[in-house]
């Protein structure tokens, strides 16, 4: 409504001035509240094996939980995406998101995830850095979704991957803004490494109960058990993730991120910033 009133005051005698500026996907207070709530719920859905407190007998719900969550999480992700879209995403932001998602999806096969060479995140981190947390969050979701559609990889794991990479994109947008130059690249490399391991750990946490199974009979085989305490389960998970993936995929991913940002960080940031300048968002209309 703001824009219409502004236009009306810009009557015949006066100039109509539109200035450009602002964020591609603005993070409003309401969006932020929803984002926090969904992040809490989403994190719990990742970590449920660690959080369960059941008597050994009442394990019926335990098998239900992942299925229920697999149905619920997409809904939550959709809620927050709809909120961002409603909060003033204009066509420029939308086109930019679409094109960057496509580039991201195109980069993915070059790594193919083999040996942990996962090239999705470096562009996500850089774009989140340039366009801000809201954009980073949405890009994280859409680029994984698009690449899942292209490679026919839609499944219950997809919402979890989307949320995870959305956090990575958002986090990149929340890094201190004033750091520039070499220090910025160093900071982003650090973030890339941390986020690679975090992504690995979270996705492992997601697949842990499925791959290692539930330890119902109380034997030690690296599976979670609802009878154990949080700490004990965490310990088991720690060992699980260390043996299964930290040495391989996660480290590969971290190295990919670090190398990609070190090598391509500066030129890609320049390209993205140039685009951001040319396609500034949010028309601020005024009459003078």
């Amino acid at each position: 409504m703001k824009s219409l009133t502004a236009a009306r005051t810009a009557g015949d005698g006066q100039d109509l001035v539109t200035t450009l500026g602002g964020h591609a996907v603005p993070l409003r207070a309401r969006s932020a509240v929803m984002l926090v709530l969904i992040s809490i719920a989403g994190l719990a859905m990742f970590c449920w094996p660690l959080l369960t407190h059941h008597d050994a007998s009442g394990s019926a719900h335990v098998t239900d939980a992942p299925i229920i969550f697999a149905v619920t999480l997409p809904l939550l992700v959709f809620v927050i995406l709809a909120e961002f879209a409603d909060g003033g995403m204009d066509s420029k932001a939308l086109a930019m998101l679409g094109v960057l998602s496509a580039v991201d999806a195109a980069l993915r096969p070059t790594g193919g995830g083999t040996g942990g060479i996962e090239t999705v995140f470096f562009l996500l981190i850089l774009a989140g850095r340039v366009f801000g947390p809201g954009f980073g969050f949405v890009l994280g979701c859409t680029s994984l979704f698009a690449s899942a559609l292209i490679t026919a990889g839609v499944g219950p794991w997809l919402p979890f991957q989307m949320l995870c990479s959305a956090w990575i994109g958002m986090g990149a947008g929340l890094l201190p803004r004033r750091v520039r130059g070499t220090r910025e690249i160093v900071m982003l490399i650090g973030y890339g490494i941390v986020s690679a391991y975090l992504f690995g750990a979270l996705m492992n946490l997601y697949s842990w109960p499925f791959l290692a199974g539930a330890d119902i009979s109380g034997h030690a085989n690296l599976a979670y058990s609802s009878a154990y305490s949080l700490l004990e389960n965490l310990h088991r998970f720690g060992v699980y993730t260390l043996v299964t993936s930290t040495g391989g995929w996660d480290t590969g991913r971290a190295i990919t991120n670090a190398v990609a940002i070190a090598v391509l960080g500066r030129p890609v940031l320049v390209v993205l910033r140039r685009a951001a300048r040319r396609a500034s968002y949010d028309l601020v209309r005024s009459a003078d």
């Binding site: 995406l81 709809a82 939308l94 086109a95 679409g98 998602s101 979701c141 859409t142 559609l149």
Partner: peptide, 12 residues
């Protein structure tokens, strides 16, 4: 409500 996000994916 998801039309815009759907469009992003279609564009991608």
């Amino acid at each position: 409500a998801l039309y815009d996000i759907g469009t992003v994916v279609v564009v991608a």
